[in-house]
Design a protein around this nucleic acid. Structure first.
Lengths: 257, 257
DNA sequence: CGGATTGTTGATTGGAGTCAAAACGTGTGG
DNA sequence: CCACACGTTTTGACTCCAATCAACAATCCG
């Protein structure tokens, strides 16, 4: 579905100078190569750059724009009354942020840049109008919402794992999967978030993330150095990830033969 | 946002005889009272009745229709390779099922009726076309997706609770909240799903759900009889629900003053 | 160079998973 | 209508994993 990473090409000059891009660029970056047209070339969107730790959208902020991530990475967060920050998900190149504002006037969750990042700002009112005569854009929007829901389901599945080691294993595989879809290496990956963010996302204590990672290292599944992870034994990782609730881990051989 | 429960009114005859309804009915049932018009009166959708335990949408089934629940209840499920059934959510009157198929050709999750139920079948291709000249319908669709994402965020928050008693407390409050929005009593509620379904949804063992419920009863928060729950001390429930990860339950006064 | 954040590791303990069994409900067919 | 089988729900006992508290190392930043 997603093609290879589309490098910044003909609009690079415009991008660098005036911080703008076209709807054609958006379609490509969103993974819909081949849907660009003269009409989409004519539509302009502005870009926005953010430094690490800076907030793209505040919780409770008015819903006006959707954002397409084209460089860097973000976390989706929601803070409860006690001040606990729940990480709902992570967004990287090609992901659309702010869909939770659809149909209402305010965002429920916020988005924070995890590194220096760039997004396309797409005013929703404008986007809605464009969708009515640009089927490609409409399809992009539908696809984005579908993907978002799918990812949330993955997350729920991940959080329901009985053991923390399984949770972390699934998390690593999820990241690798997303890298693969973007055409990157799925053996070496860089964590752009802190252990604490991972912990919140997985619903465990941050020390547990540390311990689970070292456990995976000692199992020979992965190698970890700071925020770089190398997948050494993908089969074993998948074996682990299968450990689920209720079912006693398949018939005979468990692992640890 | 959601008005009171809209009773079956002028279309009741049509509903009973030919199993059809109009887009105006759909808008009312979806909680958008006052958006009906002559045009929406002219659009017809068919209804579908299901018996308890029967499947509305199979996992992996072609994505063709969205479904609006107008009676009964459903669970959203996704089964992994090991056969473990993860419950992703529950749908009742006014909820739209099948949004996870947006932008792709197959559903990722399935929907199973928890009791005898009725849905409106809305062919998506048709709905998409209608949206282009019926803003009310388009708004309904946006609102439904936004609500769905919001609910998934709630679920993630719920699953991240450190203690199972807190998880169950949040679950009960969530149900009460949804009943209240529909104009029903938020003190007495009937669980339409099994303890096992709840357990899968919460990411705990089903015995734990039992234990947590009896614990809440002994705390005097709720009364439980079979699948009927009565909320006796809502304040205490809220107090419990606040127990979150990391923060030691606020600076000074913890609870249990 | 310090100060702060992030990451790792250790010791302890409570809580939840697991296995097991029994009470309860429900529906079916004799 | 009863008997029986099946699924659901509850409760108990035991074990073990993960949260917590705490200390320390490593890294990043100004």
């Amino acid at each position: 579905m997603h093609g290879n990473v589309t490098p910044l090409n003909m609009s690079e000059a415009r991008l660098a100078s005036s911080l703008q891009c076209t709807a054609s660029d958006v379609l490509r970056w969103a993974g819909m190569t081949g849907h660009a047209s003269a009409e989409t070339d004519a539509v302009r969107f502005s870009l926005r750059r953010l430094h690490a730790e800076h907030t793209l959208v505040h919780e409770g902020q008015m819903f006006e724009n959707l954002h397409l991530v084209i460089a860097g990475s973000f976390k989706d967060v929601q803070t409860d009354l006690e001040g606990y920050e729940q990480v709902l998900g992570f967004a990287i190149h090609g992901d659309i942020l702010g869909l939770d504002g659809l149909g209402r006037d305010r965002h429920a969750s916020g988005a924070v840049a995890l590194e220096d990042s760039t997004v396309v700002v797409m005013p929703f009112a404008e986007l809605k109008a464009l969708c009515h005569h640009l089927p490609a854009l409409e399809r992009m929007l539908h696809q984005a919402t579908g993907t978002e829901l799918l990812r949330r389901a993955d997350t729920q599945y991940l959080m329901s794992a009985p053991s923390s080691e399984v949770r972390v294993a699934r998390f690593v595989l999820q990241l690798a999967q997303r890298q693969r879809v973007l055409g990157h290496s799925d053996r070496r990956l860089r964590l752009f978030m802190t252990r604490r963010d991972i912990a919140s996302y997985l619903g465990v204590a941050h020390e547990t993330v540390s311990r689970a990672l070292t456990a995976l290292v000692q199992d020979g599944c992965i190698g970890v150095s700071h925020r770089d992870i190398e997948i050494l034994d993908e089969a074993a990782l998948h074996e682990l990830q299968r450990m689920t609730r209720g079912r006693p881990a398949r018939d005979g051989h468990v692992l640890a033969a």
